[in-house]
Amino acid sequence: MADAHVSAAPVAHQFDDFQQQTVADTFGMWLFLATEVLFFGGLFCGYSLYRNLYFEAFTAGSHLLKIQYGAFYTVLLICSSLTMALGVRAAQLRQKHALTIYLILTWIMGFAFVYVKLRYEWYGDYLEGLIPGVNWAPSRESLEMVNHFHATLPHLALFFIFYFCMTGLHALHMIVGLGLLTTLLIFTQQGKVTGGNYNWVEIVGLYWHFVDIVWIFLFPLLYLIGGRYV
């Protein structure tokens, strides 16, 4: 039964059949994700290094972040990963209507992530003077936190540079993901996915889950590590 759908799918001329093309496409995405691991790896490496060198400042910095945001993002991304996974399932079953709904849900949650991050969390950091180079004027409470952990202000700035670079690169990936989802939605409406190459959904799904995994590590590293008890 599935073969009836498969025969309708376009196969690029370098592939023998649709299945070979599918396997190659998916494998290519995994290869790309491997390079992404190393792309983020540089930041994770730098973070681990300087956290070990300036442990006190990184602990103080972690305490200055609002854990509610971190936990909220984590749950939001897990929800969006669920709808994305269900979307892939709908694509496999060629359910156009269900796929559209799951893609829209995923898009909304991804957008909520970026919006809350920029509009509330980063803007809040800006008002508190916690953005090095833009508005670096830590408040009295922040300075007390720094003193409490026997840290120094330049090292705290280093923590916040890592924080903004890591979450910024992640947010950039979220925005790219939103673009991919939009493209996928258009293709779905044109019937190119359920009537043709359902594997596009799987590939975008892989990317989306990868970005989720990056956040799964960023959340403990930036918000939790060192403990939240004072």
Binding site: F27, W30, L31, L33, A34, T35, V37, L38, G41, G42, F44, C45, S48
Partner: peptide, 14 residues
């Protein structure tokens, strides 16, 4: 293999 390679190089880096 790809995943193991990615993690291996990450381990080398760090």
């Amino acid at each position: 293999v790809v995943i193991v390679a990615a993690l291996l190089w990450l381990a080398v880096l760090i």
